[in-house]
């Protein structure tokens, strides 16, 4: 039930993200979602792609530092309260979120939140009990 997210080290320098994007473009990789965490000196580019293993391979070949991180894609209704319900559920069960980002999916009325949680299995159990749907990796990659 985990999604493989690409995490890439990006120095704070001109053209850095453009280079990454071009490597993925040339390999025919499609990007589903992207989020950049930044500090004054460096950033971490997090990408959900259709072929994460292949994307990691081409990035490594081009000399980038990249890792694959297990994340959870929670499906939620694209309506007021949909997102709040997910994070409230986690909070009520004392589950910390390292970081998250969300996007609207192509299915009308649906949205998706990507969650990076250290106690990932616990989070999945809580979601199952609370009736929060979690997307499979193939559903996300082929979105």
């Amino acid at each position: 039930m985990f999604i493989k997210q690409l995490s890439i080290f990006a120095e704070n320098r001109k053209g850095c993200v453009a280079e990454l994007a071009e490597v993925l473009a040339n390999a025919g990789i499609e990007i589903r979602a992207l989020y950049v965490a930044d500090t004054s000196d460096f950033g971490i580019v997090r990408i959900i792609a259709d072929k994460p293993e292949e994307a990691a391979k081409v990035l490594k070949e081009q000399g980038h530092t990249v890792s694959l991180t297990d994340v959870i894609a929670a499906n939620l209704s694209d309506a007021p309260g949909g997102f709040a319900r997910v994070v409230r559920t986690l909070s009520d069960h004392d589950i910390d979120v390292e970081y998250m980002y969300a996007f609207i999916t192509r299915v009308s009325g649906n949205a998706c939140v990507i969650l990076r949680i250290k106690e990932a299995q616990q989070a999945l159990d809580v979601f199952a009990k609370s009736g929060i749907a979690v997307l499979t990796s193939s559903a996300v990659y082929n979105m």
């Binding site: 965490a37 500090t39 971490i44 530092t65 890792s67 991180t69 390292e98 990076r116």
Partner: peptide, 15 residues
């Protein structure tokens, strides 16, 4: 230089 061993997907770990 960053290496795969040093790298983490969280800013907190790298800092």
């Amino acid at each position: 230089e960053m290496t795969p061993e040093m790298f983490s997907d969280t800013v907190r770990d790298i800092e």
